[in-house]
């Protein structure tokens, strides 16, 4: 218990975090690539073609994990923001603001793959399907967070502002999701929900889960890389950064 607390405390110190994450990154990259190869091979080659959608369904191996990540990252961002604002933890602030672009990227990916899938399914690139619409709104929530962070010059203030906004967004996401779903069923009749089929063959499901984990690891890698950059930038006048780049 004590060792764990001590370690968490250590991670809060920028130089230690920088060194530790540097050692961690190669391993994570290996794991991520391995999982991606496994998941893609399982999904694109091994899994049988769908009897209705034939090979078009295979895009779910990117679409579904990306959609999961888009929400997962928003929640992580808001929680990190709350920790940063309540306990003034600098690292949590950095996690919060560096998560936003990664989350926006996954949301964008989910939207693009969703509309690519929509073409063979619905015969059109875009339908106002409840899930796609929610993703679209989520993308704008991310844009808001990123724009606000960019606009405020004092980055300490900006981090607080972003944390407040992310928390407000977090409270609103279920409301938005529910209202969009309600709106959708009311206007178009219940759409066929393609993603959560009641029964999915195990050979189709396992690659999906592997891809989901691979995406999580990717998020972690991207987060660490962005955090390291942000740290160097924020602490550019401190001794450890100057030693690192050989200035002193």
């Amino acid at each position: 218990m004590n060792i764990v607390m001590k370690w968490i405390h250590l991670l809060g110190s920028p130089p230690y975090f920088y060194r530790f994450s540097g050692k961690l990154l190669p391993w994570l990259t290996v794991i991520c690539v391995g999982l991606l190869v496994w998941g893609l091979y399982g999904g694109l080659v091994q899994a049988p073609a769908d009897y209705q959608q034939s090979d078009a369904f295979r895009i779910i191996y990117v679409h579904v994990p990306a959609a999961w990540m888009s929400l997962f990252i928003y929640v992580s961002m808001a929680i990190a923001g709350a920790i940063g604002i309540i306990w003034h933890v600098k690292m949590a602030e950095i996690v919060c603001i560096t998560s936003a672009p990664i989350g926006a990227m996954f949301t964008f990916l989910a939207l693009v793959t969703g509309s690519l899938w929509g073409k063979p399914m619905w015969g059109t690139w875009w339908v106002w399907d409840a899930r796609l619409t929610s993703e679209l709104i989520l993308l704008f929530l991310y844009f808001g967070v990123i724009a606000l962070y960019r606009a405020i010059e004092d980055k300490r203030m900006a981090a607080r502002a972003v944390a407040i906004l992310a928390l407000v967004g977090l409270v609103n996401i279920p409301i938005i999701h529910y209202s969009v779903e309600w709106w959708n069923t009311l206007h178009q009749g219940p759409t066929v929900t393609k993603f959560d089929k009641p029964s999915m063959a195990t050979s189709m499901l396992i690659p999906l889960l592997v891809m989901a984990i691979a995406f999580k690891v990717y998020y972690f890698i991207a987060l660490l890389l962005r955090m390291r950059t942000e740290l160097l930038q924020r602490e550019r006048n401190s001794k450890w950064v100057k030693e690192l780049v050989g200035l002193s």
């Binding site: 709104i137 704008f140 929530l141 808001g144 609103n172 938005i176 209202s179």
Partner: peptide, 20 residues
């Protein structure tokens, strides 16, 4: 330049009200 960002921040949150 608060004005344009304000729209970006609040419009997504206005959607449930608009829908209902």
């Amino acid at each position: 330049q608060g004005g344009i960002i304000l729209a970006l921040l609040v419009f997504p949150l206005y959607i449930p009200v608009l829908i209902f």
